[in-house]
């Protein structure tokens, strides 16, 4: 193999993209030619430096929620070109369920009552990420957020300040989830949003239970006649850490 030929193949050699025969030829040439071997080193070095410099970005939650909502909406709309396919279905009396929000998309399992609540909480969480839906009261100060709920809902959610634990308070809102008016306290962690729902629910206390669906984590527990749900796309470890702080 000639040096010029070898130089042209160095990147593909480094990336293991050569055919076995060519790969062997380059390898043998590098073993005998110091100059080409030095160029080969350079390719490896610059590739490593480039990899160190490039950073993966994380798609923001809001973008993910927007995309899910747009897809659900699109799926609910019959396609123009397939109009003829819908006719026999309509004739057969089938009703295409309207997928009008991210809701149906996020169905966890249509099984038990707890699953249905989880689905409702998840839908509410995704909806809250749409622009302008997250907060009724935006404040990092617990003394602004807590009194805001007074007279608006028949429970007084606890709103601890968790800044020092790395969960800054963002604010709160009222929501309506699974037939319950709910108080929602919103915390953040880096770019993640954590919604903490609470509503009155008679029954014995229950320890935290976790669930996962579509990349979101949910933790639910019951304490003193109040049901709590914490939901986020944060990893389960950090979400559990927040739950432990809230239960203290």
């Amino acid at each position: 193999m000639q040096c010029a030929e070898c130089r042209d193949a160095l990147d593909a050699f480094f990336d293991s993209e050569l055919q076995p025969r060519e790969h062997a030829l380059v390898r043998d040439h590098l073993a005998t030619c110091l100059d080409c071997a030095r160029h080969s080193e350079e390719v490896a070095t610059v590739s490593r430096r480039i990899q160190e410099s490039l950073v993966p970005h994380r798609a923001p939650d809001v973008l993910k929620a927007r995309i899910r909502a747009a897809i659900a909406e699109d799926a609910a709309r019959p396609r123009r070109r397939s109009r003829w396919h819908w006719l026999p279905l309509a004739a057969a009396g089938l009703v295409i369920a309207a997928v009008s929000s991210a809701a149906t998309l996020l169905a966890v399992h249509r099984g038990s009552a707890a699953d249905q609540v989880a689905t409702a909480v998840l839908e509410s969480h995704v909806r809250s990420l749409l622009p302008g839906h997250l907060l009724d009261v935006a404040s990092n100060n617990q003394h602004n957020v807590k009194p805001w709920f007074d007279g608006r809902i028949d429970l007084s959610p606890s709103v601890p300040s968790l800044d020092s634990a790395g969960f800054p308070l963002a604010g709160g809102r009222l929501d309506y989830v699974a037939s319950h008016p709910a108080a929602v306290v919103v915390y953040t962690r880096r770019q993640h949003v954590i919604n903490v729902y609470s509503w009155a629910e008679p029954g014995a206390d229950a320890a935290p239970v976790t669930a996962e669906s579509h990349g979101y984590h949910l933790v639910s527990w019951r304490n003193g006649g109040v049901e709590f749900w914490a939901v986020s796309d944060l990893n389960i470890g950090e979400l559990a850490q927040l739950v432990a702080l809230l239960r203290r």
Partner: peptide, 10 residues
């Protein structure tokens, strides 16, 4: 497809 949104965004 949706698991690749981070790569797409990057």
């Amino acid at each position: 497809i949706l698991p690749h949104l981070d790569d797409a965004y990057t």
